[in-house]
Design a protein around this nucleic acid. Structure first.
Lengths: 333, 333
DNA sequence: CTGAAAGCGCTTACAG
DNA sequence: CTGAAAGCGCTTACAG
């Protein structure tokens, strides 16, 4: 069933059928009704390949997600999708592995499906610095700041990772802890864990401490990595009374590790996480964590991207605040 | 950059360029090399719309996922994807809301992108009964059995939900519990929770009990629903000493609810889950659960679908076994 | 308000 | 081994 068939059945020409189906204003209502009726009866679905081949641009916005599983991203994606479709665009979600290059993939997607814009979740600014100049459509980096880059078609929406991580560690200091460990983080400040690490370092310095190897253990942002890292950390530094885990998943792994060592949270060791996913609130103990403003990130990203697509908005870098959610995983010393 | 441009640059005709790029055997190696080199230099990416419009069928397999967020599905999707691409096909993932009709969506997708096959995650057999006859390509229902249906192009891979749920409740009885509650489930045996509920009922009967309203509370399969349902259940039936939650997420919500009521798991109340997601192993307490064989479901689904696409396999319904993972959330009475 | 015609970028029978 | 031509299903300037 193609528009040609509908043209034949209806007696109209194919151009009129096309216009009627797309609700062009210059087709009489009567004609539209007839044609739409026939399309409906025959369960006509337009061939999107033909449509897009002809139109050169699609109506779609791509959400490019790095890291296939991440509850934090999940809730953002969901809301983003809802919002984008409310604004009248289709959305295509594409997942990449951690080791794939998101910008290269974006280049390919641009050539293949010609989207109007792209939002990146979990991208690395360094990758953007190197290759993003190949991309011409409006893009937005969500949950990571692109402030340090200055592409005129790249905006970003995120929390200030340095500040928020500092906030987390400050919180532990404020509760009287002086032996604080960090799960996650590294020296590379171009990525999220590097930025959060920098925040930790600041907090340490302000409290007259130096953040040495003794106090942190790197980990990818998943639960089993958190478990392993926490175990190592507690082995090399048994005096710790509190741990900042750089994501809630890391925090869950950390708490499990602490339990497996025969210790309890928060009685022996306090734990604070980062992200504020729904599960944090249902974990036992309820996790104290830095809650990123998911809805705001999702909605702002969608709005800014659509603004940029309309050409009404310039690239900008939105830094949002996070709030501390107090659970039962931190106690004062 | 199109193949026309490459034809111009290389001096060959566009048909030769097309054939070279697609590695057709009737193009000399030399020509192929030259053309591919030029394509590479110019970062040529074929326009997939044009390609598919012409080819009429794509090379892709669609994974249609109902319910946008579900850690259990997540790990299956990931493995399925890996496996499908290893078998030489592209994969497109499409998420639907709970209230959308998966089969109707599949019909549309068939017309739009003409996939070779579809795997459904989280589909409802009843929906298939009504509309699936409209679909002509090989499909597979994963994690839910389509045994009761007899479409020659619809296979399924799943555990036996009735049996596995019975296993869970039997386990609690075996540990001496006699007041067992169920979180989730309903009378509609066309869906997963209905099947599991039927298994619970069987177990109750075999142990000389009747599964009345007093013993269960319905809940959608998410953590907050589990929390609410468990609270209600314990309110209306305070004598319970054990609960079977029909998914791990429900179990987490249940455990949190128990804690909030000032009781402890497993000392006051034992809890067993269903699915066996990674998180279950990192929850506190470690969750005892019925582990579905994710890899096997993923791999078998992929294999069976590809077999059906090749026309070498008939529709079949694979029922896999689940195993009990013993955590620390059940104690003997 | 409607239609005939061109063309989007590709593939593939057909001819050489 | 290579090329000219037709055609996939749509949209849209152009003409009426």
């Amino acid at each position: 069933m193609t528009i040609k068939d509908i043209a034949k059945i209806s007696g109209y020409g194919i151009s009129t059928v096309s216009r009627a189906l797309n609700d062009h204003p210059d087709v009489s209502q009567e004609t539209k009704d007839k044609i739409k009726q026939i399309a409906k009866e025959n369960r006509f679905v337009p061939n999107s390949n033909a449509k897009q081949l002809k139109q050169q641009v699609s109506n779609c916005i791509v959400i490019l997600v790095k890291g296939s599983f991440n509850l934090f991203f999940a809730s953002i994606i969901e809301q983003m999708q809802t919002h984008i479709s409310r604004l009248g665009y289709e959305t295509v979600i594409h997942y990449l592995n951690e080791d794939e290059n998101e910008v290269r993939m974006a280049e390919q997607i641009c050539k293949e499906i010609k989207p109007l814009g792209i939002t990146f979740l979990g991208g690395n600014p360094e990758t953007f610095r190197k290759r993003f100049s190949n991309i011409a459509i409006p893009c937005i980096l969500s949950t990571t700041s692109a402030q340090s880059l200055s592409f005129e078609n790249l905006s970003s929406v995120s929390v200030d990772d340095v500040k928020c991580a500092k906030q987390a560690v400050d919180y532990l200091f404020a509760y009287g802890h002086t032996h604080i460990g960090i799960v996650g983080g590294n020296e590379d400040i171009s990525c999220t864990s590097g930025l959060r690490f920098a925040g930790c370092r600041q907090s340490f310095q302000e409290h007259g401490q130096e953040l040495t190897d003794q106090y942190f253990e790197q980990a990818h942002f998943n639960i089993s990595a958190g478990y392993e890292a926490a175990k190592k950390l507690l082995q090399k530094n048994p005096q710790l009374t509190a741990i900042f885990a750089m994501s809630d998943m890391l925090a869950f792994g950390t708490i499990r590790a602490i339990s497996d060592l025969g210790l309890s949270v928060p009685n022996d060791i306090s734990v604070i996480g980062f992200d504020g996913i729904e599960l944090a609130n249902y974990y036992c103990p309820k996790l104290t964590t830095i809650r990123q403003p998911c809805e705001n990130i999702a909605v702002s990203s969608a709005k800014m991207l659509v603004g940029a697509i309309h050409g009404t908005e310039q690239a900008q870098h939105l830094l949002l605040d996070a709030e501390i959610i107090e659970g039962d995983s931190v106690r004062s010393l």
